[in-house]
Simulated assay, not measured.
Amino acid sequence: MANESDCVNENPASAPFNSERIQDVVLDHVLDNVSLFMGGGSSAERITLLMDSLQELSEKIALGAMANRVHLSDLPTFNGKISADTNQTVNDDQLYETRFRIVEQRGDNPKPIRDEVLSKAQAIESYGKEFVESYWGSLGERCPNSVTTGDRTLWFSIVRYPVNDQSMAQGNDVNSKKSYRAPSLR
């Protein structure tokens, strides 16, 4: 019985995209848009800008949540436990982000002539917001997708891409102990 109890009480590393990460994303968003949240403009104009801002924030959170797996609980059994996700590396604390991928092929050649992986901001900057919405979708909901014109085919998909951010790693060392912030204090 002691072995069964030990097996159930293992504490894997926490998922990199958790409630603390969401708090950080919200705080960064408010700081980036402080003039919007602090006032200015007419009521209708301000509400429209606020809604656009919150839509942008919700998309950022959704893209982050999609790219990072959720740590589900394992199911205890008589002999041990059944993993909630058989492909999951339990102690993987790598943070991932959703990237927008475009692959271009010509004719019957299976080797692509172009293969780009872009952040959403880079995709919008390179191709325009309407193009991103039409072929990828704001959250990648149109993927996988392809368009063929003559002998040229463009393939659209979203991929999970590891975030290599030195400042985030340094910030985690300095702020390793997070404190709870009440909603009214955020």
Rank of each mutant, 00 (worst) to 15 (best):
A2C: 01
S5K: 09
V8P: 00
A13L: 15
P16A: 04
N18T: 14
R21A: 10
V25W: 11
V26E: 05
V26Q: 00
D28Q: 14
D28G: 15
L31N: 15
D32G: 14
L36G: 12
F37S: 01
G40H: 10
G40C: 09
S42E: 04
S42C: 02
L50A: 02
E59W: 01
K60I: 00
I61M: 00
I61E: 12
A62K: 09
G64C: 15
A65K: 03
N68Q: 07
N68F: 00
N68L: 10
V70S: 14
S73F: 08
S73K: 14
L75T: 13
T77F: 04
T77D: 06
F78N: 06
F78M: 04
N79Y: 01
T86S: 07
Q88M: 15
Q94L: 07
L95T: 06
Y96N: 14
F100A: 04
I102D: 01
V103T: 14
Q105D: 02
R106E: 13
G107E: 00
G107W: 06
G107H: 09
G107K: 09
K111H: 03
R114V: 04
D115R: 08
V117S: 06
L118G: 11
K120H: 03
K120L: 07
Q122L: 07
I124V: 13
E125Q: 12
G137T: 02
C143D: 05
P144H: 03
N145C: 07
S146A: 01
S146G: 00
V147P: 05
T148V: 09
G150K: 06
L154T: 06
V159P: 03
R160F: 02
N164P: 08
D165K: 14
S167T: 14
M168P: 05
D173P: 13
S176M: 15
K178D: 03
K178E: 13
